[in-house]
């Protein structure tokens, strides 16, 4: 998995609460059996007009100024609903490596860490402030430093963020989780021998 240490990039706003994974990747694109190639279907129903091809000018993220964005700014309960990992796959294929939100749905949050995406939880006040700043200035950029758990604005102002130390380590090192767990294979075998449910 790709490592995550420091990221500096353009921020794109998605001004909505409760953005569900059906919205991030609609069901018709879940028929594919590959892990990549989802960049064009991210936010499909919002992003394109009814022909499914022409970018919808009313969808804020389509604006020229947000092209090439690597940081997504949104509101609360992002990624709720279906467990589909196609959602983080599509966000990553599009170019996002970091998501700033007031809160995340549990399953989506976990899925991010298995795909090298850093989800950061910030207070509603800070998120509100960031929305204002992103819209006020073209090419608004932030620097995300996972090692030091800080977000730096272009004027040098810093915002601290919290993250569980294990999750942080996983992203920084880009660990293959299965390989890590298989270090404990013997313990798994021992567990199976004395399982309370006698499976």
């Amino acid at each position: 998995m790709e490592k995550f240490t420091v990221l500096k990039g353009i921020v794109a706003p998605l001004d909505a609460r409760n953005v569900d994974t059906d919205q991030i990747v609609p069901k018709q694109f879940l028929k594919r059996i590959q892990r990549t190639g989802y960049e064009d279907v991210l936010f499909y129903d919002w992003r394109y007009l009814d022909d499914g091809k022409t970018p919808n000018p009313k969808f804020e993220m389509n604006s020229e100024r947000y092209q090439g964005a690597t940081i997504l700014l949104t509101r609360d309960n992002f990624g709720c609903g279906s467990s589909r990992e196609h959602a983080p796959w599509a966000l990553k294929d599009y170019g996002f490596r970091c998501i700033l939100a007031i809160s995340f749905a549990d399953i989506f949050y976990n899925n991010c860490f298995n795909n090298g995406i850093l989800p950061i939880t910030l207070s509603a006040d800070i998120i509100e402030q960031l929305f204002g700043e992103v819209r006020a200035k073209e090419n608004y950029m932030l620097e995300i430093d996972l090692v030091n758990q800080s977000i730096t604005k272009e004027n040098g102002e810093k915002i601290h963020f919290d993250i569980h130390s294990f999750l942080k380590e996983r992203l920084i090192n880009g660990w293959d989780q299965i390989g890590l767990t298989l270090r404990y294979e013997e313990l798994i075998t021992n567990f199976e021998k004395q399982h309370p449910l006698k499976l």
């Binding site: 892990r35 467990s83 589909r84 990992e85 983080p88 399953i107 976990n110 899925n111 298995n114 795909n115 989780q177 299965i178 767990t181």
Partner: peptide, 8 residues
């Protein structure tokens, strides 16, 4: 769970 976890 997500697909990476399915694999795990």
């Amino acid at each position: 769970i997500g697909t990476s976890e399915v694999e795990h």
